[in-house]
Design a binder for these strands. Structure first.
Lengths: 189, 189
DNA sequence: TAATTTGCCTATAGAGTTTAGGCAAACGCA
DNA sequence: TGCGTTTGCCTAAACTCTATAGGCAAATTA
């Protein structure tokens, strides 16, 4: 019998594609086996279990996102960097909704610490170099930026802003304007 | 055989409790049947299917949240209202993590339109009466507030802010200060 | 080319979802 | 109070997904 050439890598990538097509919560080992025209049990040589598959897809998504973000930040500073960085998240979520959901999977602490999630917060902090913030305000600002990016994209994906004027793109631009203004004029404690 | 007294209402409430105990994604019709010491098939007279159960739990959570928010807003204005409203979300998520996750279930458009989600945006808009914003800035601000509340609570629940100084409570307070400052001095387009 | 390793297989078991059809408890009315 | 109807929970069964054990053949190595 010809071999299908399964590897953990290929399965993870195919799982990510599957997530974008049918939704991250619809990703199953069975569906993945069908996609490779292979029996389900065969996948268990390459994946520990279903959770393992999901975790790997999440890590893949976090890395792709971090890579894109790093590209976007290169050579940019201030509001330019802020905007480019924020758009990476929003664009990624639109292009890859399943992967974006995956990126928000709750990872256990050690997996999280080893993931690209760490790069994300470092990059957010890097953006703030363009503004005049000392600790602990810098950390507060990092958390606020993360909240806005994640919150907006997440609500937009869920359809929260659709079917109502004004266009959500306009709200996004204004949110970034507002964040820039806020960072330039951060209120004292 | 004595009857268990199942109703859609009781099942939904028990499902919400189950969600808080074991996580919203672990809520199954089977687990619910065990909780009532009843056979699984019996639940299908009261629930269309598993998705129906989840949707009902989501609607319950949205209503509870809206009720609490309405209470919190009564007699308050300006930053006081903003803070009280925001704390309702954060406190609810801490008290009822499973229900909070449920509240973020993607509902189909008609279910969403009939849900308490509508009250939430009306209340957010009401808060802005304490600030001087005209349309379309008011809508942009509503969306920004929703993004921050949802984003912060969601990241905090996922453990994103734990195990690192400063305390996430402090970041929350400062985020609300920042939003208040921003709304009082909203940047022009 | 023989021995070993590796990869995908069959078989099987357990859990969750969902439907069809049955029996008895509760209810509505004479 | 007793009778018929309705309702509620039941058994049975089919299907899907997860997961493990053990087998055979293809690929690798010497």
């Amino acid at each position: 019998m010809a071999r299908a050439g399964l590897t953990t890598e290929r399965l993870t990538r195919a799982g990510a594609e599957l997530a974008d097509e049918v939704g991250f919560d619809q990703v199953t080992v069975s569906a993945l086996a069908r996609r490779f025209d292979v029996k389900v049990a065969s996948l268990y040589s390459h994946l520990k279990n279903s959770q393992d598959l999901k975790t790997r897809i999440a890590q893949l998504a976090l890395e792709e996102l971090a890579d894109r973000a790093a590209d976007a930040l290169a050579g940019r500073a201030g509001k330019d960097a802020l905007t480019a960085f924020a758009n990476v998240y929003r664009d990624y979520a639109r292009e890859h909704p399943g992967r974006y959901d995956a990126a928000r999977l709750r990872l256990d602490p050690e997996t999280a610490a080893a993931s690209a999630g760490v790069r994300h917060s470092q990059m957010t902090r890097a953006i703030l170099r363009g503004y005049d913030l000392d600790e602990p305000d810098q950390t507060h600002a990092v958390r606020l930026l993360g909240s806005v990016f994640h919150g907006f994209v997440s609500l937009e994906m869920a359809g929260g802003f659709s079917h109502s004027a004004p266009d959500s793109q306009e709200s996004w631009s204004r949110a970034l304007d507002a964040l820039d203004a806020l960072l330039r004029n951060w209120p004292a404690a």
